[in-house]
């Protein structure tokens, strides 16, 4: 059989086939047949090669990062557990009040339907948020959350943002429903943040 290796690396067969155009038939290169003395020798060689490869790994040493003792820093835009925010004490009179007014836009944006907001009316004598309305119940079911960050995008008051915490494992599903108090609390900074340029 005449064969020629073209520039594209495909070997085409230079023989006329009935019903087929020239170059439609290519020949395939196959490895040597297994078995026989040659086969045994090749297998032995390949086995030695394999043994060398694995032994080289011992020389390299482990690459494991010893999580929880060692952690890789997250990027600043990493989307971890949500945080609810309060106004800063900047003297404008709103200091300490919750930014969230309970508008439910986050719940509307949420594709996994994991946010539940029940709003209520503010008591002017004892304000919770700056507006007329506040979130009486604000719950995120973190076992359903997909951390897409749409809630953060939807929020008109920057009241909810995605934090950096990803260590939320727990023993009960019900403990994964984060209430407003848990989301408002200053989170324990367990996750190192990647510095600029790192």
């Amino acid at each position: 059989m005449n064969a020629e290796l073209n520039t594209d690396g495909i070997e085409r067969v230079n023989r006329e086939f009935p019903y087929l155009n020239e170059g439609d038939v290519i020949s395939v290169q196959r490895g040597p047949e297994p078995g026989g003395v040659g086969g045994v020798a090749r297998t032995f060689g390949a086995t030695l090669k394999g043994l060398r490869t694995t032994f080289a790994r011992i020389v390299e040493g482990p690459v494991t990062i010893q999580y929880p003792e060692e952690k890789t820093p997250v990027f600043p835009r990493f989307r971890g557990r949500h945080k609810l925010h309060r106004f800063d004490h900047d003297g404008s009179g709103t200091g300490g009040l919750e930014k969230c007014v309970g508008c439910s836009l986050c719940a509307a944006a949420c594709p996994s339907d994991c946010i539940r907001v029940v709003a209520a009316e503010n008591d002017p004598a004892n304000r919770v948020s700056a507006g007329e309305r506040f979130a009486e119940v604000y719950e995120i079911n973190l076992s359903r959350c997909i951390f897409c960050g749409y809630c953060e995008v939807a929020c008109p008051f920057d009241a909810i943002t995605m934090g950096h915490d990803y260590e939320m494992a727990d023993y009960n599903r019900s403990d994964l429903i984060f209430t407003k108090e848990m989301l408002l609390a200053e989170p324990v900074e367990r996750t190192p943040l990647r510095r600029e340029g790192e």
Partner: peptide
Amino acid sequence: YRFRARPWD
């Protein structure tokens, strides 16, 4: 009904 629910709730 004030502040009780949103149309998507």
